[in-house]
Design a binder for these strands. Sequence first.
DNA 1: CCTATATCAGATCGACTGACATCT
DNA 2: CAGATGTCAGTCTATCTGATATAG
Lengths: 149, 149
Amino acid sequence: MPAEELPSRPPVLLRLPVFALSRLGQTARAGAKAAFDREGLSWRAHVVLLCLHEHGDLSQRDLAGLISMDPSDLVRLLDEMQRAGHLRRRPDPRDRRRYVVSITADGTDALHQGERIMDRATDEVLAPLTPDERETLNALVLRALDISR
Amino acid sequence: MPAEELPSRPPVLLRLPVFALSRLGQTARAGAKAAFDREGLSWRAHVVLLCLHEHGDLSQRDLAGLISMDPSDLVRLLDEMQRAGHLRRRPDPRDRRRYVVSITADGTDALHQGERIMDRATDEVLAPLTPDERETLNALVLRALDISR
DNA sequence: CCTATATCAGATCGACTGACATCT
DNA sequence: CAGATGTCAGTCTATCTGATATAG
């Protein structure tokens, strides 16, 4: 329970919870993106690698669902990642409409590298908060997301 | 509606705090935007009206700073709002480079209408949370923003 | 026949950049 | 003169739509 000197009132806009949430979301995303850019990696690619590592091989449609990206946009991201040698696309023998997307050894390397970057970026974004506060924030964010989709 | 037994672990991506924050920010922004769209209003315009109501007359540059919008982009937003009769731009007699932006009576009406819309949108976004939790979330978000900008 | 998958082309929107006229 | 202000034009990115070929 940090004895916070409450700033009598935050600036107008930040008194709007949706505005504050939107703004923090932007800074979080921008911070992560910048951190990955600095190392010549893509944070969107990292998200894909994480899913592949966790769920194993996936179809493009399932992948798109997991990361809430439009399937048609995912195509181009996967193109880049394939060109970088971080994943493989192979036709699914059980359903010839689908491709089986799987992570490669190079992709796994990039994943580990990305995890370090992500950890540092998270630390920067949440720097003003204590570990307890970070945990509380995270729990509340997850609860808020459960219904608001 | 599957009765969610709390998944002992949240899906991969949501275990990344920056990802979860980014996602919640997106849904919050999208929810607000949709709510305003439905009523034929703009949530970005509402943010401007709020600032004008709180701070009184402002230059475009000061406005841009308050809402963290690029001044050159603000020009077009103000054009629309002026066309809608929600604000006035008048040359500043004390500094002829500047315009004094001020809210009109119609703008004040739109502000009040927007406040109702915003309240409902906020309720939707934070629906899964109790009032106490909402307050905690808000305080933590503000604290996180204080340094991470 | 209707649906699902992956793909492509294009529209749209918000954020950002660079240049410029006017004024301090 | 350098710097600030409002403006315009253009780029870039992410997101979203619509159409299509192929397969279930």
